[in-house]
Design a binder for these strands. Structure first.
Length: 263
DNA sequence: ATGGTCGGTCCCCGA
């Protein structure tokens, strides 16, 4: 009895479809949370992915953003297609569903947290406001006392050990103290960051820029995370960053992180 | 080494 849940920012599902299909066949996660699908719902390659045995739910947007949930287990209910707290916010960055695992319901969200650069500025203000809304939602979810996995591209480098050269990133929205504090604030509610919990090694990355040879030089950052409610954290068995997809032709700049749970 | 990389769209923007 084991449930694997992956998060991967694919940077356009259309540009990445062959890579995504190849990876789904190889890694075969029970649930995959995708970000930056960069397409509207109607243009999402639903059939190709359903053919691999997945149920598919998307919150798409033209050109930018967009998130998806793929699940081999039944999706009982899509609980939310947007993060509550701002009716004016039209950016497609959040989907949350209840999925039937063998042991009972598991709540999973696919999250594309705003980048926030340049900082300071309106984009940074939006990032911080979005994180406050996420904290509120995360807090509300704890009252259900069920396994909750908030998986996604958080655009947060939690510690200096999660970047090859922290000094080079000083002032960036991904590493600013206020950004880190907003991320910690969610953890202090009672959430566990899966990778930090299981793997003590530093300098394990999930993103390498396309520019300046970042991938061959291993100049990466760790910004894709799984945040777990206590009921999920108690069942966490393993976490792996799967670097395979980043080394392929036509790669996304992110690579998947996969958690395995006794669920 | 005075540029460098992608993806989507409309001639530039976001990452």
């Amino acid at each position: 009895m084991s449930l694997s849940i992956a998060s991967w920012n694919v940077n356009s599902i259309k540009a990445r479809l062959p890579n995504v299909i190849e990876w789904l066949k190889e890694a075969s996660p029970d649930i995959a949370c995708l970000q930056e699908i960069k397409t509207v719902d109607d243009a999402f390659p639903r059939l190709e992915i359903e053919e691999l045995g997945y149920n598919v739910e998307t919150v798409g947007q033209k050109s930018y953003n967009g998130v998806a949930l793929l699940s081999k287990k039944p999706i009982e209910e899509v609980a939310l297609r947007a993060l509550p707290g701002d009716d004016e916010d039209e950016q497609a960055r959040y989907i949350e569903a209840v999925i039937s695992a063998d042991t009972g319901p598991v709540r999973v969200a696919s999250i594309y947290l705003p980048n926030g650069n340049p900082a300071p500025g309106p984009k940074y203000d939006y990032k911080l406001a979005w994180m406050e809304r996420l904290r509120n939602r995360a807090e509300a979810l704890l009252s259900f006392e069920e396994p909750v996995i908030l998986a996604g591209d958080y655009n947060i480098i939690p510690r200096d050990d999660d970047v090859h050269d922290a000094a080079a990133w000083e002032g960036d929205a991904l590493i600013r103290p206020q950004s880190r504090a907003a991320f910690s604030a969610i953890k202090w509610l009672g959430y566990t960051e899966a990778f930090e919990q299981i793997d003590g090694r530093g300098h394990q990355y999930t993103f390498w820029d396309y520019q300046a040879g970042a991938w061959p030089k291993n100049n990466g950052i760790r910004i894709d995370h799984l945040l777990l409610s206590p009921q999920a954290a108690d069942t966490l068995e393993a976490v792996e960053i799967d670097k395979g997809p980043r080394g392929k032709e036509k790669a996304s700049d992110h690579t998947p992180i996969i958690g395995r749970f006794a669920l």
